[in-house]
Design a protein around this nucleic acid. Structure first.
Lengths: 217, 217
DNA sequence: CGAGCATTTGAGTCTCCTCAACCCGGGTGG
DNA sequence: CCACCCGGGTTGAGGAGACTCAAATGCTCG
């Protein structure tokens, strides 16, 4: 009932380009992506990460121009839905409209926490917080010693936390030295969840996992 | 058709408390407010400002718990709508559902820009950017020499930009010294819009004013 | 006219940045 | 099969922007 095209994008491809007019909207099937904005001096800020099952650009349905870009992390597969098809369906089914709204609200909650993270925490806490968030979002359960496959370079982490890659590197080394995490070649292991959570001042309330799980069927 | 109560809140009152369960949702009629989160060491991050005509906590309709607080700036008047009433109406009127979704998307666009602002700009640019955004949102037109009434202290500006109030003070003084702005006792005058815009790396695209104006009837 | 808050100033410090070089592992081509 | 190359990670030294702490000044309101 909802027409969609399967689209495979290659590593590091731009899925949504800043400044262009959107015609469709993508749901991530496999792989990961991130949103970014570039400032005048060329620095990049990563604004969010997206994993399978999430819409990566729901704003494209209602906003006339992309105010930021979306880039693939590794190869990924998308379900691309024409915006008019999605809007038509949303207009007919109130429950779907509500689900879209909710999705956008949940996304907004994460953005708010990111403003706090880059605005009011030091490098160590920012990185710890990011790793905690990703661990929770990747499978909603975080147990000590569990490995998460994260196709991020240290440069991605730096751009997501508002730091330089050099300082990010040194900060990650400190976390490793203290046996809190292992992070290498796309694999993250959190050895001491409670400690990392404490360092990152992490409180998962903003992720609203309960409602998220319940409403997404 | 939509039941609401008029509520006047006093200066600096907490309108929404972090951690509590929301029962209603407020539309700002007069005055201003801001959203905030507090981190463990006690520092505060302001996440957004809200002006008359805007919903200050639309997320309260669908999320089960407040993940942040909302505080009044000066005295303000709200239209308080019970969440069930609003949700009921939204379920019946697709156009309203779409308007709520759009409002949330626009808010998300601002959050994204704020992540960039605190993450990748220096103090001077952060403050200039914030002042540009507020000027545009306050009346959508920015002409040199126009005065805006902004009930913000330097501490509010500091908490919105992720700086300390001391450094904010020195940075504002520099902007004043260069005759770019006047900012005192709740009154902002931008003497050189283009210069301030340049310093703040400000591009109003993310505010999506066209659609905003068009759809809000 | 005093109280209380906001703003301003100074001095010293530290976190994080810049620049530059080097290392390492994996993939590629000769 | 080895040399090379390239992207990512690591290291060092030096500098700068922003922070901390503390005190003084100025404004506004009762």
């Amino acid at each position: 009932m909802l027409p969609f095209a399967r689209r495979v994008v290659e590593r590091d491809a731009l899925i949504v380009r800043e400044g262009e007019e959107p015609a469709s909207c993508g749901l991530m099937l496999e792989g990961c992506a991130f949103r970014q904005k570039v400032v005048r001096n060329g620095a990049r800020q990563i604004i969010s990460f997206h994993f399978p099952g999430e819409f990566i650009d729901l704003q494209n349905c209602l906003l006339p121009v992309n105010d930021h870009g979306v880039q693939a992390l590794g190869v990924c597969t998308l379900a691309v839905v024409p915006r008019n098809a999605l809007l038509g369906l949303v207009a007919q089914r109130p429950s779907l409209a509500r689900a879209m709204w909710l999705d956008t609200l949940l996304e907004g909650a994460i953005f708010r926490e990111w403003v706090v993270n880059v605005g009011r925490r030091n490098a160590r806490a920012r990185i710890a917080h990011l790793l905690c968030e990703l661990a929770i979002r990747l499978d909603a359960v975080a147990e000590d010693g569990k490995a998460y496959y994260l196709p991020l370079t240290q440069e991605h982490i730096a751009d997501a936390t508002g730091l330089t890659s050099v300082h990010t590197n040194r900060t990650i080394q400190a976390l490793r030295r203290e046996s809190l995490i292992s992070l290498a070649s796309g694999r993250l292991v959190i050895h001491d969840w409670n400690a990392l959570r404490g360092i990152g001042d992490f409180n998962e309330l903003y992720l609203h996992r309960e409602i998220d799980r319940a409403e997404r069927r």
